[in-house]
Design a binder for these strands. Structure first.
Lengths: 187, 187
DNA sequence: TTCTATTATGTGAGTACTTACTTATTTTAT
DNA sequence: ATAAAATAAGTAAGTACTCACATAATAGAA
């Protein structure tokens, strides 16, 4: 097996390498991983197909690079919530995060891909949401909930349900649903 | 285009035809629609590949047949809830439905396929859950909720979130989560 | 019943095309 | 001058689907 060059590739990237990643993210999120061929990615990125394999070893390596890059984004996105100590503020910030996501096209594409990949590969990326879950559990504990860990999990379940409806249902009113959540949790 | 024979095929089915449907459901739910080739389905079902196309015209026709058969199942599953008039009993029956689903392997496979297909094809099958949503809205109205339609949608969102965690997370405790829901809705 | 004509069920070997991936070669940057 | 970036043209295996043919079931006439 050839040695992978991802570790440094994350930091030093050529223009074409970035184009490949961007095209792959867009196409994987739109059509799905399996349904998107490497030749389609190459055409969309305006590069030769061989270059994909030079930079990312194989199709899976391309996906891993996208997922890894997105993980950093997720950490950044959650960091504001995770380090908040005031419990009500944790919830407020979590809901605000959902609201703000709508405007960020790149982030939306990434999260949509996350869900698609989860269903396509059957591996739930628990590690990604774990710090968020802990922060929520801590907040619910401070607020006096009977079973804070379960309440935190329940909140993540709600978020996943909302994401599903948001991404797959054209008519879904995200702001209205967040308003309902705010009322329910009194924040 | 050749005339389709699905309409009557739903009622009169040969043994091999049923085997194809069963294998396809199993493989589509496990590996995904795109990732499952017709040759794999044929091998798994122990029939020639050509027979699939004789009976179901094409791969999409095979999927449609599965989805259509499952729709009948869904109607049957919901009927008990839809015709219930006592609001608390509607919620109780909805939660009971979730609990009972665990034991029904065939139904579980079908619902897992539903979610996979939703993410793969980006079409949310709203029509399937619509009667359930109406029944829930009616129940929430009787219970005096401020916005019963939105509460009903919220409940479906929770169910979808739960389904996602149940199907994709190996460690998910469904019964505990249903218990939490029962407590929250006081049923 | 038995023979026969007809239809429905089923197969196996093919089709053209796409797939992920490789390799030899050229272009570009240092 | 050398190494990295990029390409074009491959490859073998897989894809959905077709088609000529074989087998089984069924119905009507004798």
């Amino acid at each position: 097996m050839a040695k992978s060059q991802q570790p440094k590739a994350i930091f030093i990237m050529t223009a074409k390498q970035e184009k490949i990643l961007k095209s792959a993210l867009e196409l994987f999120a739109k059509e799905g991983y399996k349904a998107t061929s490497t030749s389609k990615v190459a055409k969309h990125a305006g590069v030769s197909e061989g270059l994909i394999f030079r930079h990312f070893t194989n199709k899976e390596g391309l996906l891993d690079a996208i997922l890894k890059e997105g993980e950093e984004q997720a950490k950044l996105l959650f960091s504001d919530i995770v380090f908040e100590t005031e419990p009500k503020e944790v919830l407020r910030k979590a809901f605000a995060m959902l609201e703000n996501l709508q405007a960020n096209k790149a982030a939306l594409e990434f999260w949509k891909l996350q869900y698609k990949i989860k269903w396509e590969t059957e591996k739930y990326g628990e590690h990604k949401t774990e710090p968020l879950e802990l922060a929520l559990a801590s907040a619910f504990k401070k607020l006096g909930f009977a079973n804070p860990e379960q309440e935190a999990l329940f909140m993540l379940i709600i978020v996943d349900g909302i994401a599903m409806h948001y991404f797959l249902k054209q008519t879904f009113d995200l702001d209205a649903m967040i308003a309902l959540l705010k009322a329910k949790y009194e924040v």
